[in-house]
Design a protein around this nucleic acid. Structure first.
Length: 361
DNA sequence: TATAAGTCAATAGT
DNA sequence: ACTATTGACTTATA
């Protein structure tokens, strides 16, 4: 009952859950949930918050040299209130979207952006809440992208084309029709017609495996097309490379730039395939979830399908300003407790040692 | 050990 | 403010 878990033990957070993870400043791999053991009906309903380690090149330097980071502790006083967002993230099925590619398969799971399945939380899901957040979660200087969030997500939801529940075994190829037709400004536009039809088949970004396999691990990704589409998407939504690289790919801006401009053919890729898989997966996601992934600033935690972000970390607003801004989606700490109780989580391994600190065994 | 692949991070360029 | 370039570094592999 006194397991003192800090972020130092993030590697051992397996099975643990971060309700309020004070994640490192910029390394998303330490904040993104890795494995969603959302087995319904059991305590594992909690969404484990696990690190998304960098791909194969996890080296000692990563942990020791440059990024002495950041083994921040879950010390923060969670005193404020939480911002509540729906977590559209995934269920176990997405785990096999990643192949055991070297040791990457573990990290790959972290990118599971798949829609959450019915875990009984649907009724709580308030679209309004989610939307509010998209529009208002601003960190420093990513306003453009996040502003998009509000509007596009709203319109998208209005159109009802979010939630393409392609969850387990769903056809991964039915991707983003509203994006497929889009233009690629400033691009040679190699093949006429939609980006999809680069191959004789209708498998857009995949070469081979015409869709039966949605696990995303065996396909040959058309890296060039992926690169083009990612480039277009980033442009379209004014998403800086740095943001995308960091939060979705766990790579540096320069790396992404290089990959985007000089994508190597799939056959020539080795561990670098993982990066393209992440890009590809991101493209598969509904906009709703794409932006969710981008928005992850590392200051929020995911818990049973909801994202909890410390309000006071969102920006430098006064209390009043914040309250005005987040009238509905604020979850007080006590409400959080209530939620936890509602979901029977108290009987789980979730422990509170003192206010503002949650620990798990 | 040599080489290739992948990436980071500094920095130059726009 | 963003993006592109590139040398250095790590890791994997022949």
């Amino acid at each position: 009952m006194n397991t003192d878990m800090t972020m130092d033990g993030i590697g051992s957070l397996h099975g643990g859950v971060a309700v309020s993870s004070v994640a490192p400043d910029y390394r998303p791999e330490l904040s993104l949930p890795l494995h969603h053991a959302m087995s319904v009906g059991t305590y594992t309903t909690l969404t484990p918050l696990q690190p998304l380690p960098p791909i194969s090149t996890v080296s000692d330097k990563f942990h020791h040299h440059h990024h002495h980071h950041h083994h921040q502790r879950l010390s923060g006083n969670v005193s404020g209130s939480f911002t509540l967002m729906r977590d559209e993230r995934g269920l176990p099925g997405m785990n096999n979207l990643y192949s055991p590619y070297h040791k990457d398969h573990m990290s790959g799971m972290g990118q599971s952006l798949s829609p959450v399945l019915g875990n009984g939380l649907g009724s709580i899901h308030n679209t309004q809440q989610g939307l509010h957040n998209y529009g208002t979660t601003t960190h420093g200087g990513h306003d453009k992208m996040l502003n998009f969030d509000a509007h596009h997500t709203a319109s998208m939801l209005a159109r009802g084309d979010h939630h393409q529940h392609r969850g387990l075994g769903g056809p991964a190829a039915g991707m983003m029709p509203h994006l497929n037709g889009m233009h690629h400004p400033g691009h040679p536009s190699p093949s006429h017609g939609p980006v999809l039809a680069s191959t004789r088949e209708r498998t857009p970004l995949l070469l081979g495996d015409a869709g039966g396999n949605s696990s995303g691990q065996l396909e040959e990704i058309n890296t060039k097309e992926v690169a083009q589409r990612i480039t277009a998407e980033l442009k379209r939504y004014s998403i800086p490379q740095a943001i995308f690289a960091q939060r979705v790919l766990c790579r540096s801006q320069g790396t992404l730039s290089d990959l985007l401009r000089n994508p190597k053919p799939w056959s020539k890729l080795k561990s670098g395939r993982e990066t393209f898989r992440r890009m590809w997966k991101w493209l598969q996601e509904p906009e709703f979830q794409r932006m969710s992934a981008l928005r992850l600033a590392g200051k929020s935690g995911w818990c049973f399908g909801f994202c909890f972000t410390r309000r006071d970390e969102k920006r430098n607003l006064t209390q009043q300003q914040q309250q005005k801004e987040f009238p509905h989606n604020v979850l007080t700490f006590h409400l959080l407790l209530l939620l936890l109780a509602l979901f029977g989580l108290f009987s789980s391994r979730l422990l509170f040692t003192h206010f503002g600190r949650m620990k798990f065994i």
